[in-house]
């Protein structure tokens, strides 16, 4: 399937920025099940200073924002060919060792609530994938999809306590639980083409777990499925922070507002 994406993020500041840097991870990866046909990231109100590939094989670009800037617009546009691999990305590659993906981070720390969730899940499963699918379903049961309760800094424990969350929270909970169960796990930020609409509210996020024999397998808790050809993988990391599409430091520039426009279609 050829998925076409146009993703624009516009930051507006009431008061001009005195200086800023933004790290962007917005270029999809060529990886199991997907091939990038074309991709372009354009910036207005900022300058691309450099780029490199990080420890997760993400393409990272660094933008500087000049003094006096009031609006920064980042527009990505491109096409990605995807195929159905039943959510399996394949064997682990790259220099980052698998044990690294067992490291917990502040957002994916397994506290009492994650531990309880894993106890509730039990151990009676035929194989790893069915155990992880059951975990995914249990998370969605415990934490219903709802916007507005959590934000980008919410931890897995906090989201379980709130009982509500978005795809980012679902991914963090699954990662925390999977690591507690001994699996290497990681966060994926990307795009999902919804069948019933072109305009999307936001980018999507899900989790991948490393299973012996299969390699990395994706789990989208929010939609109760493993990724299929409608999914485009962009960046991966131990948690949201390492895979965040845009992160940075802006000095001055009070009252930041952000408008995202995202179209994903065939």
């Amino acid at each position: 399937m050829r998925v076409k994406v146009r993703h624009s993020t516009e930051y507006t500041y009431d008061q001009a920025v005195s200086r800023g840097l933004q790290k962007i991870r917005l270029t999809p990866k060529n990886s199991g099940g997907q091939t990038v046909v074309s991709w372009d990231t354009g910036v207005e109100g900022g300058t691309k200073e450099l780029s490199y590939t990080d420890q997760h094989n993400n393409l990272v670009e660094l933008l500087s924002i000049a003094p006096g800037t009031r609006t920064v617009t980042i527009v990505c546009e491109g096409e990605v060919d995807t195929s159905d691999t039943a959510g399996i990305i394949g064997q682990h590659g790259g220099y980052a060792p698998l044990w690294y993906f067992r490291r917990s981070t502040p957002q994916t720390r397994a506290g009492p609530r994650v531990r309880q969730l894993v106890r509730d899940l039990g151990k009676d499963f035929d194989d790893d994938p069915s155990r992880l699918h059951a975990l995914s379903a249990l998370i969605l049961d415990s934490v219903s999809y709802s916007t507005g309760t959590t934000d980008f800094a919410t931890t897995a424990e906090q989201a379980i306590e709130a009982g509500q969350g978005v795809c980012q929270d679902h991914a963090h909970i699954l990662i925390a639980a999977a690591r507690l169960m001994g699996y290497p796990a990681r966060y994926v930020s990307g795009y999902l083409m919804m069948d019933d609409r072109v305009d999307q509210d936001a980018g999507h996020a899900w989790a991948e777990v490393h299973v012996d024999g299969l390699g990395w397998v994706g789990f989208d808790v929010s939609n109760g499925v493993s990724p299929d050809p409608r999914y485009v993988r962009v960046a991966t990391g131990l948690d949201y922070g390492e895979a965040a599409p845009i992160s940075g430091i802006v000095y001055g520039g009070r009252n930041e507002s952000m408008v995202v426009q995202l179209q994903v279609q065939q």
Partner: peptide
Amino acid sequence: VPGLMDVYRAGG
């Protein structure tokens, strides 16, 4: 220095 590590990783 903000960005030092990025410049380092980019070979600068």
